[in-house]
Design a protein around this nucleic acid. Structure first.
Lengths: 213, 213, 213, 213
DNA sequence: GATGAATGAGTTTTCATTCAT
DNA sequence: CATGAATGAAAACTCATTCAT
């Protein structure tokens, strides 16, 4: 009765590379397809038949792994949030101790944009879809979102403490403005019209100068 | 069969104030309701029955004014883009000649945020919905979008010409980053948790410093 | 949102004869068709497409009147119970005061069989379907059932009081045995193989002699 | 492809006591589970997944023993009819020669109720499900039913011949009324609200007096 | 013997749309 | 102008059944 595949490691690197049993790989294809469909059409527009087609299964096969469309979508979103968090943590973990706050923010900007624009549909799906989700579902993702925001918040708070942040800036508002600048890139960035490098550098420059004292 | 009121002045101030015949007012209620529904549920999720309920009409009544759901949605989006453009033009027209480019950009930031966050659901609906629209429809809104982008582009180009813009910044990318920061406010700004003033000031500061040489 | 047709007189004689607006008549056709389908295939087997076909509408039309299959089925069952009750009450009301209990029981037997076998599919549907209904639905019909049983119970109690009922009989068990004898007729009686008269007379004789002191 | 265990002794005492290989016992669990499911939900409502769950196997395992759902259901029904017949025969066989017809009828009443209410879900399933079966399947069970009816018919005919049966009673109708009274007990008898003894005695009294001259 | 995985054929349900009034 | 009534197309979901292992 319950969904199978107990030990699937959602969001781990291994899972991402198609390891595991055939069943795990099918399940993963379905979740990936869901992220793609959410990106293309949003919460209400992502049809099971679209998802099935992308995942190369028949639509009812989805019900072998998930008990409803909403459960599937929630999983895709939740994996996306987890992956975003994970990649950000990895990126920040590699920054040497003692790195000044503004430099760490530059790293975070690059990590966020990398995740969003190249590493996975999941991250983009999660970020863009969350606002459209039914209330109950959205609330269930709240903690994950808050945890991610907390990382950013800590970065800005450090900058403020060290005096690198302009005094007259409201940290909360600034944070949302910065994340907006980054998140919106999904809507317009086209790899064929400009390099990812350019986007990242531009964003880093704008944000660093924008925040600086 | 065809829509009856060809000469309605979409987006003009008069229409906005509920003037005109009963028919015109009903039509307007429907378009407003559509914008609300698009904001709440996105393109695919905005049902005619939702729209009808918000507009306080029966769903088939919509067909008296529009020949299909898509036509209605396109109108709502198009009104939103027009209104955004209109308010921006008005705001910039009031800026005295000779105002330095960066100050004009501050005015534009305030105008954009005002439109988006308080003046109408239409602007928000337009901006958030466009990326979800079916390709053909989206393309039909292209010119309006481009015209709006051109205004912003001119502001940045002026700043570059006058040397107020940092040399190492890619204007196109910077513009999209800036607009992203502004547009994303719709997703998070809650009038009860922070004043519009704070949002506007924060955005202005960040953007001005971010862009400045 | 709610089901329409506020004033439909469920189960009244007028409604049965197709009076009322077109809408009322369609609604009634659907309920009638549901009773027929329930008789033919039981709760789980009665498909909306069957019902629609019998009612001569398209299946989605059903949703104009009922918000789900279960709601429709519950209405059909509930109408059936109401009609059974109604016809029984009418029959007993016509019995002159002072009629001995056993004679009143004969009248009840005839009324029950008439309702079940000729007057309406609803009564048969209700009686046969109730045991198959999902628990919640069944419980909601409990009161109606109990009220009907109470009528019978009163008849038997009168017989006991007047000394017409055999002393060694358990009233509750006897009642159920009697009703079983009557209800089961639906499963076997074929108008072409024996007259309704015969069934009624046989049942009356058996029951009267069976119960008598 | 075909069912594997041709020579299983359906309905024999040995089979009932779980003798035989593991395979035979699994098969039996499945048939028992089917009877239970048929009782609970009727022909259309008894899902293979329900049956599998009750039998504690996975649904596809059923196909090792039966080639289709219908074949399984038919077997369960047919076992039920056979068991009913068997128990009735045994009961009547034990009645001494020369026992008066009415007494033999009392024995039959007790045997029928015993089978139905305590000895097996199969008998109840068979009796209640037969009317819901698809026509072809029902017809295939016809002979078994007729054979059982014939036993009862003979009992009543004997009573008529010996003059113990009321003259004005139609034997066919009376038989069906009697069986209805008995069969319907399944729908209402609750071991916690009244003893089986009471049901049997009440039924015997009613039926004997009801039929008697 | 039995199961995990999957599918095809249907089922209920939703929704934009039509149309007579 | 507007609505009550209805429908066609497509959506989510269910379920018996298959099949490789």
């Amino acid at each position: 009765m319950a969904a199978p595949t107990p030990g699937r490691a959602a969001g781990t690197s291994e899972a991402r590379h198609g390891a595991g049993t055939k069943s795990e790989r099918t399940r993963e294809r379905i979740v990936d397809a869901t992220a793609r469909a959410l990106n293309a059409r949003g919460y209400a527009g992502a049809r099971l038949s679209d998802i099935a087609e992308i995942a190369e299964v028949q639509a009812p096969a989805i019900y072998y792994y998930f008990s409803s469309r909403d459960e599937l979508i929630e999983e895709a979103v939740s994996v996306g949030l987890a992956r975003t968090m994970e990649l950000m943590s990895e990126a920040l973990a590699q920054v040497p101790d003692g790195t000044p706050p503004m430099n760490r923010i530059r790293v975070a900007v690059a990590a966020h944009l990398n995740t969003l624009l190249t590493h996975s549909d999941h991250a983009a799906a999660a970020i863009r879809t969350v606002p459209q989700l039914p209330k109950e579902m959205r609330e269930r993702q709240f903690d994950a979102q808050r945890a991610y925001l907390a990382i950013w918040r800590a970065l800005l708070d450090d900058a403020r403490t060290s005096g690198d942040l302009a005094q007259d800036i409201d940290v909360r508002a600034a944070l949302m403005v910065v994340l907006g600048a980054l998140n919106w890139t999904v809507e317009w960035w086209d790899p064929e019209r400009g390099s990812l490098e350019t986007v990242i550098t531009t964003a880093q420059t704008l944000i660093e100068h924008g925040l600086a004292a």
